[in-house]
Design a protein around this nucleic acid. Structure first.
Length: 957
RNA sequence: GCGGGGGUAGUCAAGCCUGGCCAACGGCGCAGGACUUAGGAUCCUGUCCUUAGUGGUUCGAGAGUUCAAAUCUCUCCCCCCGCACCA
């Protein structure tokens, strides 16, 4: 017996390794291929990540034990700029980063090496494989490890894109992408992989409204182009210096930041001068669409960093505008300071343009009053704006003043009016982020136009339909996702699939300036695990992995001798690779975190459908939710989470594995809590100690009443486990194994069960059920019991299903004990004698009749009463008989009757008499068992009459 | 806004698809007891309210379907997540 979990883990991991259990080679068994979505290489992983990986290993191990040849390969995904930025941050010796790496055990020499991105990837590949997956006892075929930066992987990836192209799914068109001004394209997402700030930013689509003013255009940006009919003036911030920008033949005035942003989106832009905001006040300009001349007024809410820093004024529907216009009209200082004329002031009168539910003519005024906003600059104005915007969008209709747009819903008018103004040259589009976004490199991120961007056309209807149809044949867990995945596939549109800039990844085969983007290169890859082993072992080189090579081994195209000639790969080897691919594929199960539901899984499905024939499409998906931190999500980049090796040391790997598998359904988030993990560790301790006690019991051949019961119970649990595992239900498996079977074993011991044959059979069943989730402990116990071979290689055999009858007898005893102690508790006296009266036989007969009726679906009170009353044995009991009939009929139509059927087989008196000593021992009172049918029994309170089948009467004194 | 997920006893969390052995598995916590104190122990009992083992009221709120609802239908109230070059 190993003295510590650590020792146990090392011992059995070495044993599995030396017996090559993880090695997967073709044979004549049914195969099972399982992968988890490989992790991105962006730093240390934490205990949360191991949840999904552990499910994969446990499912794989279970499958091994049910006659399957299991392939469980692993890899890593290093595409992108994660490693590059990490290397940069190490080079710059960022405090937080260095400290984070050190805390996880990184040495100075390693830090030095990791100034190079490739070393970062190598470093973490090694950590993931050796410190995480191997330490967790995974039975992976390590020979098949691959990383997206491998040269051979790149060949596979390029082939994948050629096939997408063959299928007509690669298209090109302009694209507006978020990009760092230094590094090029970056992704904006909450996990802030690429960026250091602004992960929640969203891209806004502004309409640029051009107000003609002499030779110039004052350009305002708006999100509400449908409100142009309500424009009455123009806002400029008097404290801001604006710029004149040449835009083709025109000259625009916008804020400086806006001009800089526009240059990324429009051709032919150039700053040619400046103009002070305060000098623009009082100008007159022509509002687009309505072609009305409106005055320029001052307002400090115009932010040069938002939109163009210039704003059109629609006081009827914009709270800011309403308040600022009121200020202009009421503040004589403003009028004199900026020399505004009375005509100008008077000309700006709000125009009611949209009717919406719950608002009057001027929604902006209504919301301001409702929210008690008094002053311009009130932070509540932001909320007010959002509220009016939202309500207007959903319930608003354009009023008659809006010309030909009158009567349209806002939703529709918005698009139509924008289109019209763009066509007439009065407006353009401008995309901007709604909050500041800063790249990992420290430079700002903005929206940049990319011409000729390549996309994978996931909007293709035919592809979507085929993919969606296939999903109906798959096993997708949870079912909520199975139902929802069709919607996700439908929602998917074209996806930009390549990017430029400083990125790690595969070159796009049709244009080497582009690198294949991180999602697009991780879709079809599971199939590559069946091939990469030959590249890893040097039997084939990347140069030999041509289009016709993959066409041949994956799609069975071409003649093997031709392909051999072209690639220089021997025919025999080509045959072997091809047969491997055909044997292992399709993938049986792809397991990934919930973040994959809207990105990875759909593209995984699409690409398979697009490239592979129907019989090679994936068979299953399983989604797992997260382990979260106390307050927020545990983040691998932000640290603070328990490092994996530390947790493994502290709790033991099996305790963690059991924790993952049992703590909750896989489809719910779980808050990380060390005490909870510790309680699983204690459970393992208890189980180990129980098994070792059982194992050291002296050999006894004595039969006991509970032998049959125990084996039946275990049979029932195993049946439940196998049934559940059809859905990969590990929680059920663990619940049955580590809790139910444990409790039954305790009961068996408590009932003085001691038959060593029975115990050995039970232990064999029990320990084998532990092998998928807690393999180290299972091996240790298996070997301790002297069972043959390794439990990891054990094959589950047919176990006789549980027998409800033999299980029922113990339930009866438990119920009786429980009833006795309840009564003792309630009557609050020290009992000296307990009498148990089993039912009168005529009642058993009545129940038998009722059961027969129930089986035929004919059970009701009158029918049962009638039949009972015609029975010679029952009729003499008169009123008691009719009342029993009533009760039985009522109870038995409401509940299932399995237990009742079982009790018909049982002689309650004999059974309870045999257990009387035990019941006495448990309750601490002398117990006698009598039948209510017996003559002259001791029954001072007439309790015996209350006994019914399965529920003996009890008298206590 | 669009789309998705969820609200179960002190707490975490099963059950819900396929209505009925559901006062509702199990864990943790708590209380009492046993054993006994090399322990983050183990074992037993209890843990909604009541009570000779019964009965009552519960599964976000309300209404409905049904002999029967935590489970099905509708309405409402709260919470969480995704909405795209992020794995």
């Amino acid at each position: 017996m190993a003295s510590s979990y650590r020792e146990m883990e090392d011992k059995w991991q070495r044993e599995w390794q030396s017996r090559e259990l993880g090695i997967a080679e073709r044979d004549d068994r049914p195969k099972f291929m399982i992968v988890f979505a490989y992790p991105g290489v962006t730093g240390y992983l934490h205990v949360g990540h191991m949840r999904g990986y552990t499910y994969a290993d446990a499912i794989g191990r279970y499958k091994r034990m049910t006659g399957h040849n299991v392939l469980f390969p692993v890899g890593t995904h290093a595409t992108g700029n994660g490693a590059i930025t990490l290397a940069h941050r190490i080079s710059r010796e960022e405090d937080g980063m260095i400290e984070y790496l050190r805390r996880n055990g990184c040495t100075d020499a390693q830090l030095e090496a990791m100034k190079d991105p490739k070393s970062v990837v190598c470093f973490f590949n090694d950590i993931y494989v050796n410190d995480y997956w191997k330490k967790f006892g995974f039975l992976s075929d390590w020979r098949r490890f691959t990383c997206t930066l491998c040269d051979d992987y790149a060949k596979f990836m390029q082939w994948q894109f050629m096939k997408l192209n063959d299928a007509g799914l690669l298209i090109q068109k302009p694209y507006y992408a978020s990009a760092c001004v230094q590094c090029g394209p970056v992704a904006i997402d909450a996990s802030e992989t690429d960026i250091s700030k602004g992960g929640n930013a969203e891209t806004q689509e502004y309409t640029l409204l051009k107000f003609k003013c002499g030779d110039l255009f004052l350009v305002a940006a708006t999100l509400r182009p449908e409100t142009v009919y309500g424009q009455v003036n123009f806002w400029v911030n008097p404290d801001v210096e604006y710029v004149k920008m040449r835009k083709g033949d025109e000259t625009w005035i916008v804020s400086r930041p806006a001009a800089e942003k526009l240059a990324y989106q429009m051709d032919d832009c150039e700053i040619i001068g400046t103009v002070n905001g305060k000098d623009m006040v009082g100008w007159m300009c022509e509002a687009p669409m309505i072609r009305r001349s409106v005055p320029v007024f001052p307002a400090r809410f115009c932010d040069p960093n938002v939109g163009t820093g210039l704003v059109t004024s629609v006081p009827s529907d914009a709270p800011d505008d309403w308040i600022s216009l009121r200020d202009v009209k009421n503040d004589p200082y403003i009028t004199s300071e900026y020399k505004l004329t009375k005509e100008q002031i008077d000309s700006a009168v709000p125009i009611s343009i949209i009717s919406m539910d719950g608002y009057g003519d001027f929604p902006a005024r209504d919301i301001i009053e409702r929210m008690d906003i008094e002053m311009s600059g009130d932070p509540m104005l932001e909320d007010a704006k959002k509220q009016v915007y939202k309500d207007g969008y959903h319930t608003g209709r354009m009023k008659d003043v809006c010309g030909k747009f009158a009567g349209l819903r806002v939703e529709e008018a918005k698009d139509r009016m924008r289109e019209e103004m763009i066509t007439s040259g009065e407006a353009e589009l401008f995309r901007d982020l709604n909050e500041e976004v800063i790249c990992r490199c420290g430079s700002p991120v903005m929206i940049k136009r990319v011409d000729d961007q390549w996309f994978i056309n996931y909007a293709d209807e035919e592809l979507t339909r085929r993919t969606s149809d296939h999903c109906r044949t798959m096993q997708i867990n949870p079912v909520e996702y199975q139902n929802n995945v069709h919607g996700v596939l439908e929602w998917f549109r074209e996806r930009a699939c390549v990017r430029q800039g400083n990125w790690l990844g595969t070159k796009f085969p049709y244009d080497e300036r582009w690198t294949i983007e991180a999602i697009s290169d991780s879709t079809l890859y599971p199939i590559y695990y069946t091939i990469c082993i030959y590249a890893n072992s040097g039997q084939i080189s990347p140069a030999q992995m041509t289009e016709s090579f993959f066409d041949h081994v994956v799609l069975l195209k071409g003649d093997v001798s031709d392909v051999s000639k072209e690639t220089g790969i021997p025919e025999e080897l080509l045959n072997k690779i091809r047969e491997d691919v055909q044997y292992w594929y399709p993938l049986d199960l792809n397991l990934g975190g919930k973040e994959h539901m809207t990105v990875h899984f759909p593209t995984f499905l699409f690409n398979h459908t697009a490239i592979l024939p129907p019989e090679k499409l994936p068979r299953g998906i399983m989604v797992n939710w997260y382990i979260t931190g106390k307050k927020s999500k545990i983040s691998k980049s932000k640290g603070g989470a328990q490092p994996i090796p530390g947790a493994a040391e502290k709790f033991g790997v099996d305790a963690l594995r059991l924790y993952y598998a049992h703590v909750a359904s896989p489809f719910a988030d779980v808050e990380w809590d060390e005490d909870t993990v510790m309680s699983y560790r204690q459970r393992l301790d208890r189980i180990i100690s129980m098994v070792s006690d059982l194992n050291s019991m002296v050999e006894v051949e004595d039969d006991s009443d509970v032998d049959g019961w125990l084996l039946s119970r275990f049979g029932t649990h195993l049946a439940s486990i196998h049934e559940g595992m059809g859905r990969f239900d590990l929680r059920n498996l663990t619940s049955e194994t580590y809790f139910e079977m444990y409790n039954d074993m305790k009961w068996y011991i408590r009932r003085d069960g001691c038959n060593s044959d029975v115990i050995r059979d039970a232990l064999r069943m029990w320990i084998s059920a532990m092998a998928p989730v807690t393999p180290h402990v299972a091996e240790e116990l298996w070997s301790m019991c002297g069972f043959e071979g390794l439990v990891s290689e054990y094959q589950f055999s047919e176990v006789p299903a549980g027998n409800a009858g033999s299980e029922f007898g113990e339930t009866l005893i438990r119920d009786v004990i429980s009833d006795i102690s309840q009564i003792i508790k309630v009557i609050k006296m020290e009992p000296s004698r307990v009498v148990i009266y089993t039912t009168q036989q005529w009642k058993v007969k009545a129940m038998g009749i009722a059961l027969n009726l129930a089986a035929e679906g004919k059970l009701d009170i009158p029918t049962l009463t009638k039949i009972c009353m015609s029975d010679e044995a029952i009729r003499p009991h008169g009123k008691a008989a009719s009342e029993l009939a009533k009760k039985l009929a009522t109870d038995m139509t409401r509940t299932s009757n399995e237990g009742r059927r079982a009790l018909m087989q049982l002689n309650e008196k004999e059974h309870l008499s045999a257990a009387a000593a035990f019941i006495s021992f448990e309750t601490g009172v002398k117990v006698e068992v009598m039948s209510a049918d017996d003559e002259g029994i001791y029954d001072p309170q007439g309790k015996s009459k209350a006994a019914i089948p399965g529920r003996p009467a009890i008298y206590i004194e």
